[in-house]
Design a protein around this nucleic acid. Sequence first.
DNA 1: GGCCTCCGTCCGCATTTCGTAAGGTTCCGG
DNA 2: CCGGAACCTTACGAAATGCGGACGGAGGCC
Lengths: 231, 231
Amino acid sequence: MTRPELADRRVLVVEDDPTVLEVASTYLRAAGYLVDIASDGFAALEAAANRRPDLIVLDRMLPGIDGVEVCRRIRARSAVPIILLTALSATDDRIDGLEAGADDYLTKPFSPRELVLRVQSILRRSVTDLTPEAAVVLGAFELDPSARTVRRDGRELALSVREFDLLAFLLKHPRQAFSREQLLRAVWHWEFGDLSTVTVTVRRVREKIENDPTEPAILVTVWGVGYRLDL
Amino acid sequence: MTRPELADRRVLVVEDDPTVLEVASTYLRAAGYLVDIASDGFAALEAAANRRPDLIVLDRMLPGIDGVEVCRRIRARSAVPIILLTALSATDDRIDGLEAGADDYLTKPFSPRELVLRVQSILRRSVTDLTPEAAVVLGAFELDPSARTVRRDGRELALSVREFDLLAFLLKHPRQAFSREQLLRAVWHWEFGDLSTVTVTVRRVREKIENDPTEPAILVTVWGVGYRLDL
DNA sequence: GGCCTCCGTCCGCATTTCGTAAGGTTCCGG
DNA sequence: CCGGAACCTTACGAAATGCGGACGGAGGCC
């Protein structure tokens, strides 16, 4: 269930309630992350400095230093993504947290699964800039994820951001049929939304990779299901 | 009409009230899930360990061990999604449950339809899991479930959704006779319905896989029983 | 500000799908 | 060999599905 590209990423969880700490770290480990833990503000600052986590999950209410203050101090030294946990959904808290430099927000009680999703969604973004991803060569296509280019027969294709993301995903999972919903989740990172968004982007990609876009031979329609990349 | 891609997922329902148990499992089966049941905490823990369900629906009030405790213990060993059923909508209960590691919450009395929706919504995420399903090679036939293709002698067959689902099911269970009712349940996920629906779809599949559709040699009629795939 | 690209949304149209029904054919017991 | 049940075949049309075109807001660039 773990996505290989996200493996070996380090997450620091800062939380004083042992139960919440336990649940959160279990889920994150299950999702393939290396999890460090801290129970108060001082330990959090120390761990943030020494363990160099790729992301921090931080409780707002902490013994010792307040969570928002911890967030501010970490931010002063590093750009590591921070998810703040708060007991209330009060607007003031949210504003405080965002001003202190938090990247995302989660209101307690939260679903551990949702936490994992947020973590994944944030790390997914930063993972690309850090570790250069392996290139994929498939038939006439050549994908270089770190350069964000796709070449066909050696010539580079002029793709927009969305078009690239979609084609890159399909090149990484060739000969597999995906529903529009799956693509919306995997490529757009949306949990819901208009499925025609996918349809249109597929069409635009076809316009650029198919010899005859009227008769797609590469990015094929699977009727009643979705799309598939045939090579 | 349910989506075939969700089929073959295992759900464990833990509930001491026979009526609720009956209703819930019936609805979930109708939605295409394989349903296991347990009536108390001990049975639940055992089933969770042995049957390896993809999701657990867990009553909060149980004879023997409390539901929340069961939840906690399962969670200690596995990250399987858990939906907790509770008699009250008290906020305290909700927090207890979420801290114990439940993924979602449903207040009794609940609509069975809503239960199915929650289950689907949670499992949908793990369905996005990109591990391709194993291919089946049987005689001249080659089934690739993740690409949603069937090839015969290397040539890909042009099958519609229903036709593919039916043939895929039969290829996964060859040399076994199925009644129309069984096929309607397994392939269509219908609990009732016109049996001629099956007849016609069988005929359409025959048109595409038989050398002489007039004399079926592969998708054979078992008189008075149903159909069977011979190879 | 003005121009351009990107991208999500919407609408009308063509195609495909698939359940249903109706009439014909095959099978089997007696 | 007869009658009825089981099964086959064909056809129809509503509904679902996908596609192209177009529109317009958002955001970047000059």
